[in-house]
Amino acid sequence: MPNLKEKARIIDKDGIRRALTRIAHEIIERNKGTEDLVLIGIRRRGVPLARRLAEKIRAIEGSRVPVGILDITLYRDDLSTLSHQPVVRQTEVNFPIKGKKVILVDDVLFTGRTIRAALDAVIDLGRPRNIQLAALIDRGHRELPIRADYVGKNVPTSRRESVAVHLEETDGVDEVVIMEKT
């Protein structure tokens, strides 16, 4: 992995909270409530984000939205090009998704390949009514025709940069930083 140096801290704890609150409102509005709604977080950091969104939706609407966990490792399109394949973890979607409105949640939307893999993975679990995408950060540079329905913040970046989302649950702190290759 190349050496990366922190360049700028673009969102802090409050910023993340506000962005997620807004996304929660947008999800409820767009779907006219929470009926048939399910949240599926993409490992790793999509998972705590999905849980937070579910919590916010419950606070706003008073209804519980199920949260699932998706591991897309086995669906990656670059397995044959990597010298080694990554560790597989369990997918935990303990509810039927047939006929549901699935909100996929991830931290950073970049090339779109993760989402492509996630779409395949979700469809293998059943036939949802529709799939929507929520991402905390959209940093551009898409390689596939994929866009997010809900975005916390658009962050224009160069290819040399990378965006790191840190969350309490996984990293001990809530922040989004731009890293640069040294």
Partner: peptide
Amino acid sequence: LYLLTGGGDRHENDY
């Protein structure tokens, strides 16, 4: 089968 065809690095999130 997965591990012998190359799986098994703890190599996350650089996708």
